[in-house]
Simulated scan of single mutants.
Amino acid sequence: MRYLALIYGDEQLWNSDPDRREVIAAVDEFNRRLTESGELVTANGLLGPPVNVRRTDGPPVVSDGPYLEVKEHVGSYFVIDVESYERALEIAREYPGVTRSTGALELWRLMH
């Protein structure tokens, strides 16, 4: 089963985090371990700002998004391919961006 993990964070908090370099190193090690086990499919950071394309009453409109007041945003993601939901949760609980920083992770099962 494949899962998408969306990594959320507050850019202002992240930029002021004195342990940021250690967290980045821990994420690199996390990614290395999952690559070696064959469970990591891909991992990438996202560059913003994102745009929102939405259709309401007419043709699709492009905007900066409906979340202008929200401080947290998706900053990166990874995709894993694991044997069970329990293993996916185990990996999510070990992610250094959650365990060693102020981020959050959202886990989605992917359709094949």
Rank of each mutant, 00 (worst) to 15 (best):
P59Q: 11
T42G: 08
F30M: 01
E29G: 03
T42Q: 09
L34Q: 13
L40I: 04
P60K: 07
V51S: 10
N44R: 10
V61G: 00
L47S: 12
R32I: 05
V27L: 12
A25I: 07
A26R: 13
G58W: 03
R33C: 08
E39I: 01
V27Y: 14
R54Y: 10
R33W: 10
P49R: 08
V27I: 15
F30D: 04
V53H: 03
V27D: 14
S63A: 05
G48D: 15
R55L: 03
P60Q: 11
T56D: 07
P50D: 09
D57Q: 08
T35I: 03
A26V: 05
N31M: 04
E29T: 10
N52F: 10
V41K: 06
V41L: 12
V41E: 14
L40C: 02
V53Y: 02
P59E: 11
L40Y: 02
S63N: 11
G58K: 05
V61H: 00
P59R: 11
R32Q: 15
A43G: 08
A43Q: 13
S37C: 07
G38A: 02
E29P: 00
V62P: 02
R54T: 11
S37Y: 13
T42M: 13
N52Q: 14
D57A: 13
S63P: 09
N52K: 08
P50W: 03
N31K: 05
D28F: 06
N52I: 00
R33I: 08
V51I: 14
A26M: 06
V61P: 01
D57K: 10
N31Y: 05
N31V: 06
V61K: 00
A43F: 09
L40A: 04
P59F: 02
P60M: 04
G48E: 14
D64T: 06
L47R: 05
R54Q: 10
L34I: 02
S63D: 15
R32T: 14
E39P: 00
F30A: 02
T35S: 15
A25W: 11
G48N: 09
N31F: 07
T35L: 15
P50C: 00
G58T: 05
T56H: 12
V62A: 08
